[in-house]
Simulated assay, not measured.
Amino acid sequence: MNSFIPIELYTPFYFYSLLFIVLVTFLHTLILPLNSVKILKYIKVIGPVLLIFVILYMGLRPISGRYFGDMSTYSHYFKIYSTGAPITSTRDILFHNFTKFSSQLMTIHVYFLLCAGLYVIPLYFICKKWFNDYWFYGFLFLIGAFSFWAYGTNGIRNGIAGSFFLLGISREKRVWQILWIVLAINFHKTMLLPAVGFLLANFYNQPKRMIVFWALCIPVSLIGGGFFENFFGSIGFDDQRIHYFTEGKINNDDFRFTGFRWDFLMYSATAVFAGWYYIVKLKFKDKIYFWLYNTYLFSNAFWILVIRANFSNRFAYLSWFMIGVVLIYPLLIKEIIPRQHHRIGLVLIAYFSFTFIMNLLIN
């Protein structure tokens, strides 16, 4: 499918478009209170426009392995399944069945549009559930994440699985929580890691102690060197280790470089600090937020242990897909700090600045 935007500019156009919306939103936070009628009108207009834009722009992108990484791999799956080829993979079985089923009913371009919908639409429902009239802010934080675009255009099944997982956490009834999390795991097996973290959070919901656990993983990883990559490979991560530590890259090339990534550790630490500030300093108490925060700490701690691995972004994403809601959730649930709307804008600017710089200026 031809695009009116040159393919080499396709990704930059997305980030510049998002930058414009972020700046306009930031200006609103400077001059209007959160409960202003004008803010609600702004959300009613810009929210649906942004939702539709992201789905269509991401879903109708040109098919390219050069500019969109593993998109060429997904295209290959679709094409061989369209010829009647059987499913031979024993991993991520739901994804393969979904792709095979789609290949019999639609074109490859509609398939990628559907994938974008499965990735983005759950985020809308999550934000509507948690933040009601102010859903747009939560949605903007989620799609403004450093890894959001990459996992909608490259690590596609991982991205969809992450959205399914968050949708599960947002459900009130336990049966729906379990159903969506199981679907997430069967779409991408690595969702087992945050699923274990979520399970533990239900029985051991102690954010302060989990912060200590996360912090201890840093010196342990520094001392342990490559021990943990080999250890996790020896207990059943063999195939996944080969797959995730040697395959592909996200749209920027930051994870080509091995070693202890202090820059990405600092990025992860922003959510850790935010959770500490809300829970310990401001005494914010919310069962769902405790679940989110503890799951994030558990999953991110695992990544820290294997941080030296080549292309460990695949494990980093198992916590990073939650980072937006960890940062913004308390600020949209109740008033806990003075001039809260203004503070939301400042957090948004700082948060998206990292995304913009890493994806465009440093890339």
Rank of each mutant, 00 (worst) to 15 (best):
L9W: 14
Y14Q: 01
Y16K: 09
I21D: 04
V22S: 00
L27I: 12
T29H: 06
L34R: 11
K38I: 13
Y42E: 10
V45P: 05
P48F: 07
V49N: 08
L51E: 06
G59M: 00
L60C: 14
Y67D: 13
Y67R: 10
G69T: 04
T73E: 03
Y81E: 06
S82Y: 08
T83R: 15
G84T: 10
P86K: 11
R91Y: 15
F95D: 00
T99S: 12
T99D: 05
S102R: 09
M106L: 13
T107L: 09
H109Q: 13
L114C: 10
V120L: 06
I121K: 02
P122K: 05
Y124K: 06
F125D: 03
F131Q: 03
F131C: 05
N132Y: 13
Y134S: 02
F139C: 10
I143N: 00
S147K: 05
G152D: 12
G155K: 00
G155I: 00
R157Y: 02
G159M: 04
I160F: 08
G162L: 08
S163L: 05
L167I: 08
G168S: 07
I169H: 02
R174H: 12
I181R: 01
F187V: 08
L193Y: 05
F213S: 04
L222S: 08
I223C: 12
G225F: 12
F228R: 08
I235S: 13
G236A: 13
F245A: 02
T246S: 15
E247T: 14
K249F: 10
D253P: 12
F257R: 11
F264I: 07
S268R: 02
A269I: 14
T270L: 10
V272N: 01
V272W: 00
F273R: 09
I279S: 08
I279D: 04
V280E: 14
V280K: 13
K283M: 15
D286L: 06
F298V: 03
A301M: 09
W303F: 11
I307E: 01
F311Y: 15
F315S: 01
A316D: 06
A316Q: 09
L318C: 07
M322G: 07
I323A: 05
V325L: 14
P330L: 02
L331F: 14
I333P: 06
E335A: 14
I336K: 02
I336Y: 04
I337A: 03
P338G: 09
H341T: 06
L346I: 14
I357G: 07
I357F: 14
I362F: 13
